[in-house]
Design a protein around this nucleic acid. Structure first.
Lengths: 251, 251
DNA sequence: AAGTGGTCTAGACCACTAC
DNA sequence: TAGTGGTCTAGACCACTTC
């Protein structure tokens, strides 16, 4: 026999299952419909529940399914496009009028190591942390922490006094930030898994896949602030329209 | 007792494990070092192998570990930044001189349904498909398919003749495309899982997490081409520098 | 041939939601 | 309380790499 050995590949069961289920979703189910439970599906396909779950996990990762403990597995709507590139025009400070975020809270804490490095501050230096959240179509799609070193907003008193009016303090930090001249910004996107607090805010379990968008805001002196936004990877498609008029994207 | 019920939350074992391992990676291991095998790690932590694997999977998803069948689990280097926004200046056609891609192959096939919709062609209409790949630091980080409807490159003869010189044909399609005036482009990023062919090209198993970057190229008449690029989500951090001079990003 | 990670099983119990 | 998905176990065998 030749060396070609056509298709010796034994396709894993869960992979084949995923394909079968995916086609069934396209043809026999409608958005929002609930699937039979895992034990029954496993029995119906003649596999162990763990194997079936491997297939379901993949489909959930791809945004085709939504699973909720105690409730069931439902067919997910197509991912929603979420504008990231031109929320309020190119090169705008966070919190500029018209952006898609809701300012929620203010804390004073040391920034995570990579953020501290970008900001050029000591690894354990306390900075302002402004927590914001973003909702689209009635659903929480992202939560963000904006790190602002004290040097960027000298008019804001240091946070010795941890008062309850944190939302007001957060807005004050943003207002001060807007006084600076924004020289530019750059963004990175990477895959992450939701930490416990983000997971709670996004209504997901810890470890759920998220898209982490890190934005560095550059002003005169250097990096004036860094934002770390985590988007639900299962329901979101991030869109970076370059400021052009892009109308017919739709789904 | 009050209703606060502090920390009733029984943290899942795999979650706790992941935290412990993560800290160990930071303090006791160096990049490239190989970990003890899964059976031994599981025994050492007193959990089933499946539970340990759940923790390892998370760490691999976050780019902390790299696992290879038949070899072992190694500590991964930090993710590499991959420029997506300004490869060859803003608003350049794919294949413009200086871009980071290597043109490999040409096919003629119907585009996937969502792409066909963006291109405004019939769902089963055959279009040019140009396959390209991108390497960074000696590693294959992305594979791309560029879909070009026949209308965008009328000078290229329809692909009745499936000759072997497909790379040459691919470059011819790109050359023809460059004759059009590029009016704008927009990008989306979403999470996906590698199909069998992409997985092979990226040296990963099918289903591996990938970041799917979809770019729509707009010329006079409308959408002239659509590119679907899949990046290894475990090793890549996509960077959208807005064309500014952004030097001090580092790791 | 030996050792690794990848797949799969059949079961158990837990946490959560809804009634 | 009943039913769902989430976690966990202790095994088995397979596919792949290396020697």
């Amino acid at each position: 026999m030749g060396t070609t050995q056509l298709e010796t590949v034994p396709e894993p069961k869960y992979w084949h299952l995923k394909t079968v289920l995916s086609e069934a979703l396209d043809s026999e189910f409608t958005v929002g419909e609930i699937l039979p439970n895992e034990r029954e599906l496993a029995a119906r396909f003649g596999v162990a529940r763990a194997t079936l779950r491997q297939a379901l996990e993949q489909l959930e990762l791809e945004g085709r399914l939504q699973r909720r403990r105690g409730v069931g597995t439902t067919v997910a709507p197509p991912r929603m496009g979420v504008d990231v590139g031109s929320e309020a025009g190119p090169h705008a400070w966070p919190g500029a009028p018209g952006d898609a975020w809701h300012t929620e809270e203010h804390r004073t804490a040391p920034a995570p190591a990579p953020v501290a490095r970008m900001l050029g501050v000591a690894r354990d230096a306390a900075v302002h942390a402004v927590l914001r959240s973003r909702t689209t179509g009635g659903q929480q799609v992202a939560s963000e922490v904006l790190y602002v070193p004290a040097e960027s907003v000298p008019a804001i008193p240091a946070g010795a006094q941890e008062e309850p009016n944190t939302a007001a303090r957060a807005r004050a930090v943003l207002r001060e930030l807007h006084r600076l001249q924004l020289a530019g910004q750059d963004r990175t996107v990477e895959l992450g898994s939701a930490r416990a607090d983000d997971a709670r805010r996004l209504d997901r379990l810890p470890g759920a896949p998220v898209l982490v968008v890190t934005t560095r805001y550059v002003a005169e002196g250097g990096t004036a602030a860094v934002s770390v936004a985590t988007y639900r990877a299962d329901t979101c498609r991030l869109s970076f329209s370059d400021g052009e008029d892009v109308s017919l994207l739709a789904s």
